[in-house]
Design a protein around this nucleic acid. Sequence first.
DNA 1: CTGTTAGCGCGTTCAC
DNA 2: GTGAACGCGCTAACAG
Lengths: 352, 352
Amino acid sequence: MINSSRRVTLAQVAEHAGVSTMTASYTFSRPERVSAASREKVLTAARALGYAGPDPSARSLRRGKAGALGVVLGEHLTYAFDDPQATAFLAGVAEVCAEQGQAMTILPVTDASTDGARISAAAVDGYVLWTMEDGAPVLDAAIATGRPVVVHGGPPAAGARVVGIDNRAAARDIGRLVFAAATTPAVLSFPLTGARGAAILAGPDPHRATFPVTRERLLGFRDAAGDVGANWADVLVAVCSTNDAREAQTMATDLLSRDRRPDALATMSDELASGALRALAAAGLHVPSAVAVTGWDDADAARTLGITTVAQSMREQGAACAQQALTQTSIDFTDQWQIIERASTHPAGPNP
Amino acid sequence: MINSSRRVTLAQVAEHAGVSTMTASYTFSRPERVSAASREKVLTAARALGYAGPDPSARSLRRGKAGALGVVLGEHLTYAFDDPQATAFLAGVAEVCAEQGQAMTILPVTDASTDGARISAAAVDGYVLWTMEDGAPVLDAAIATGRPVVVHGGPPAAGARVVGIDNRAAARDIGRLVFAAATTPAVLSFPLTGARGAAILAGPDPHRATFPVTRERLLGFRDAAGDVGANWADVLVAVCSTNDAREAQTMATDLLSRDRRPDALATMSDELASGALRALAAAGLHVPSAVAVTGWDDADAARTLGITTVAQSMREQGAACAQQALTQTSIDFTDQWQIIERASTHPAGPNP
DNA sequence: CTGTTAGCGCGTTCAC
DNA sequence: GTGAACGCGCTAACAG
């Protein structure tokens, strides 16, 4: 006997069961507060009427909780799901959501004019943001809702917590390693801004980068170049438009054809480093004796190809972001990174 | 002048602006229906009070729309985000959600006893399900909500649409190709059930598989074995517990050590096929002359390693699922697959 | 273009 | 253990 009308309500179920609405309500939210007999009557009535449980929106309104964590990926979603780092991060977020019984709501970002509205229109209890540019309107929109906001990798903002490693310190450390014996250091970089143009720049001001993570890493590489006595103005920075080995190979090939051929290549990902290795192999240049190379992330490729890299766990960082957004606890990741030395760099000497 | 009280409501904003609640409401949902002057007053008041826009849950309740599509991944979320096919599918779903201005709510599935409740408690307008087992309670829970349900790959269920290719037909086709010159065909399979045990079985009944996609492919391989005159009861099926090349390599090595060494290996993914190729290389067996091999999906690995495979677009299937759940349109994917012949099989002769 | 009325479906509150 | 009112915050439908 299935009720074919618009929608079945709790009140109807209660009436059908011959109990008050509240008894029916308790049957679904706190079954232990209802006598077994009443519970049975309610559940039977629910089945008879095709009632699948309390309406989620009504429940959210009344309780003041949405039961979901909002996740905003700064990149176009296509990129995001293609990027292993991003999916590892999402897996971490998802894990915590599952533990806490929360849904995970991914908020698509498309064009700046409507994004803010979509962010504030989302029925979520907090936000986790990934790869935000400086001054991203989405970040402001999230903060404006008054709900907890955690942003991975920055930028810092009043009303938002930042989770992530100290990219500058890590870049300086690995930069010293790869640049150690070099006379002509160079860098393979992520895009500096959302405009995403590929280009080769000589000693660009790191502050031109509006992606905080990229900026911090450039700053660290610049520190490292200084540490080994190189002049940053002479350091070529090849900016790739995407985190893609093929493009990195092209850019690296270009770098290697320059008059002053680089003899050390610090890159911002193992993916970019893989591309660089291919370019070096094609050019017949030995690694690390002719050119030293480093990556970032300690992805599978780094292990397979023997790339010295910065290890960090995106998955744990994703979990920490979710944790903080959901429970207001605080977890510090600043020092949660580690240099993994492999064959793509000269063995480090004793520390000075 | 920021209001520090609990929560700012539309009515408060309206009062502060000196207009009616409805004028304030229209300012946010249909700005064009409000005079510029009123709109300005409302927006100013909103800013003054720190009002970030209408409460999403209240709006959902009133409108009867959640503005979100629910996505349920049958696997533990960890696996899901690690699997390139799953992320491609999600990217397709996300793309359509973004187009339609809908959020994408991922519903974590953990233990069967509470999953159903979480499904029906989600504030979503429809469901897309991925990798469901026969009789999955989650599927029933989704259908019971009365909202549109689309399930990728099956199982078929009253009240749910199924999207996916004809796996049996595709398996039969590629099976004929790989088994063509074989006397001892064998199969490398996904898990048959959620229990996920690894094992080598001789001619198992395909209906033992409770994952519909796996079942259909086994049926197709069995058809193909019959087509080339092999006795299914003699066909060894190595069931891997995960879609992982390393495990596949182990299982393939085991297969190859058997008395009647297989001379053709049909696998259910390019990942499994990659593992098989490694095992064959290690055993010094030439592909395809000693052993022919096929994969499935046309992933990067298939291109790189020259694996004959079934090409299908998970991304498009994800998009189609979302489209159907959101707009009730219907898209047929049955025939949207294609055999890509590469070096891992003997060239096909003219069709009989 | 603006205002009034009347709930959306539920759960907290406080009685019994 | 159960029930009756009330309102969470908003917007459809209708006047005016």
